[in-house]
Design a protein around this nucleic acid. Sequence first.
DNA 1: TCAGTAATGTGAGCACTGCTCTCGTAGTTG
DNA 2: CAACTACGAGAGCAGTGCTCACATTACTGA
Lengths: 228, 228
Amino acid sequence: MTGIRAKARLETTSEIKRLAREQIASKGAANLSLREIAREMGMASSALYRYFASRDQLLTDLIIESYDDIGSTVERADAKCSREDLAGRWRAVSQSLRTWAITNPSDYGLIFGTPVPGYEAPTDTIAPALRYTNVLLRLLADVQAAGCRPLITVPTTKGVSREYKRARANLGINLTDEMILAGLAGWAALFGAISFELFGHVDTVFTDPGAHFLALSEMLGSQMLGMK
Amino acid sequence: MTGIRAKARLETTSEIKRLAREQIASKGAANLSLREIAREMGMASSALYRYFASRDQLLTDLIIESYDDIGSTVERADAKCSREDLAGRWRAVSQSLRTWAITNPSDYGLIFGTPVPGYEAPTDTIAPALRYTNVLLRLLADVQAAGCRPLITVPTTKGVSREYKRARANLGINLTDEMILAGLAGWAALFGAISFELFGHVDTVFTDPGAHFLALSEMLGSQMLGMK
DNA sequence: TCAGTAATGTGAGCACTGCTCTCGTAGTTG
DNA sequence: CAACTACGAGAGCAGTGCTCACATTACTGA
């Protein structure tokens, strides 16, 4: 059963992934080299294909792990707060997002950066990708249930409410149009700010982007989303 | 002066760039192959190095062109509006941003996607990169001058106003803390939303992301930024 | 227990990549 | 017209992902 091979396989697999992450961090996903991994491990490059069908498969596995990592990080941050402390939960979630992104910049790039054209995200990635999303959705539901109202209204554009109706169905939630718009706006602002910071678009403007990010998330939570 | 060579050089250079963009669009920046470009042009691969010092140099040149392209697109959209029509200008700018991104997805990815670690953006890219930013900054300045006030206040976090003071100096602008925060929030939300859409993170949620984007930008402009 | 099977590692090899170097040719310029 | 320089060709180097035939070695069922 749990013989020598099964154990060795696990170890080899995770060692490959570890070295792959190292390479991606130092030289970028584009320059990930299976041969170099094999060299570092002292084995023939062809042996790697016993563990991963291709370079793309290895990358996909790393992406799934990263989704799970950010998912559990955000879940933990949210779980630490009292359920009624909505503003505190929003703060915890947004801070944990940025912290995770800064700690694992190459993983963030892997997930939220430029995708490879034609790379169809395998279905295996969908569930892990939903974990961090669900934390926000649950928070929004709790906000709505607590009677908080976002400080905004939805412009009466034809098609918008139909689109939001569809979103409710697809995501299995029951949020008002205002809440959906406000939630997506906050979500987009957080990730936009993190991407700007991580991808080097505000280097010349800020010296302490964290201070701005904190102000941003406070503003989004308390004022736009109306959390108390 | 303007001999046969000078003319041929311009033509060859732009033909290389054209084919490069084609390749990036179909196979991604990571899979851009100089040899394939040479093959398609019917010339030796080594000849390409008379025009671009390296693959990276070619990519850098493409990035600069893209910055200029998005910059002029946004400038044109803004210029079409009456100066006093602040809400109209915001709408025009944000719509032109998304339209450009959707029309040129690979260029958007090149600029706003995952950067290559260690790739130091050459100084040549700074000026073109500021063009689209400046359109927003001028709009924010006009909004402030018109007496509009964003519907938000800046949380009194220590360090934030110091940071915004620095931003004022670095960008050569004179906006209030509220306006800076609101402007950056709106900016981040727009790009966050575009990135989510383009990089395939809302595929399963929306069928017409444009409707949501319009609602988002209207909300950001009229309510968060307080444009009239 | 022991033969058969399946998992694992090897090394050669194919077709590709970016890039360099030498060498000949053909525009340009004093 | 001679000297110079820009340009293109082709060979070659070191690297890549991936495949395949071939050993070896751990597991497994009779």
